[in-house]
């Protein structure tokens, strides 16, 4: 065999190996999803969605956890979206090429890499104790809002960056000032990208467990929260609680909770991917 032939065989083999590795990830995903569905499917019915937590696995449901997740989701979005977009605009449109901008940039890169559990410690000390929010929805939402802020800022910046400078120059040429240009031209043109980033950030917040455990959110809640100062639990925490139960029957409950959690996560991610593709196709400068 000549060395050229050998090389061609090696090349082919690596191609198969690469394909195998790629498929391995997908297969793990499928194994994993089917396992969860097999364990938890029998659990998922109307009662499961509307029952309160219970020490008896057959009666235990996710109603308070689902309500808590919706509360946390709404309040976190309310806090994080305006601040995130505003900060993203500042970073990209105002703070270009200064010492300050450089510092903000390094800081942002680092924040994005801080483990979520550290945000929990921050929330515990600042929101729960110093500001006296207690282990309330408000404290949880503030903590998660800080956690997803870097994600929203980064994706907002990416979306703004994709708007070509000619649009800005044309707007300035018509006599618009910086803010008018941003508000009437740049933001509408980048809305698709910004919204995609926001949805992905929110979906991240829904799956977070560790920071909420650290701020002391309860796992056993027997009522539906009615205001932002109420105590709460969320779906991933309910799942975590059930995983830790000695009675193996609770594993089914955990799997059932996971099915609902994954449905919400996949739905949000699906919307985000759809918006991203549509937006990329539509906008061709």
């Amino acid at each position: 065999m000549t060395s050229a032939e050998k090389n061609r065989i090696k090349d082919k083999l690596f191609g198969y190996f690469g394909l195998a590795c790629t498929l391995f990830g997908i297969i793990m995903l499928l194994v994993f999803l089917s396992d969860i569905v097999m364990k938890g499917w029998e659990k998922v019915d109307f009662d499961f969605l509307t029952n309160y937590s219970s020490s008896r696995p057959k009666k235990a449901g996710i109603y308070p956890a689902l309500a808590g997740t919706l509360w946390i989701l709404g309040l976190t979005a309310l806090i994080a979206i305006p601040i995130g977009i505003a900060a993203g605009i500042y970073f990209e449109e105002y703070a270009k090429k200064s010492k300050m901008a450089n510092f903000l940039e390094i800081n942002l890169a680092n924040l994005a890499g801080v483990p979520s559990i550290i945000y929990g410690l921050l929330g515990l000390q600042i929101f729960v104790r110093s500001l006296n929010f207690g282990a309330s929805i408000l404290a949880g939402a503030c903590t998660l809002a800080l956690l997803i802020l870097p994600i929203i800022i980064v994706s907002t910046r990416e979306a703004l960056k994709a708007v070509p400078d000619s649009i800005r120059q044309a707007s300035y040429g018509m006599g618009a000032n910086t803010w008018q240009t941003i508000w009437h031209q740049v933001l509408p043109a980048s809305a698709g990208g910004i919204i995609t980033g926001i949805i992905l950030a929110i979906s991240r917040a829904i799956g977070e467990t560790a920071p909420l455990i650290v701020i002391g959110a309860a796992t056993y809640i027997t009522y539906i929260p009615e205001g932002p100062m109420d105590k709460f639990t969320v779906l991933p925490m309910q799942v975590y609680d059930w995983i830790g139960m000695p009675d193996p029957e609770f594993a089914k409950n955990a799997a059932g909770g996971i099915i609902i959690l994954l449905l919400i996560t996949f739905l949000l991610n699906g919307i985000a991917v759809y918006l991203r593709n549509r937006w990329q196709k539509k906008v061709k400068w």
Binding site: I36, G207, T209, Y240, L262, T265, F266
Partner: peptide, 21 residues
């Protein structure tokens, strides 16, 4: 996008998978 789904799954779910499967 399929691979990216792996990154979107909440980590507590991975924990359950590791422990029970």
């Amino acid at each position: 996008p399929l691979l990216e789904i792996l990154a979107a799954i909440p980590t507590v779910v991975y924990g359950f998978f590791a422990l029970t499967v």
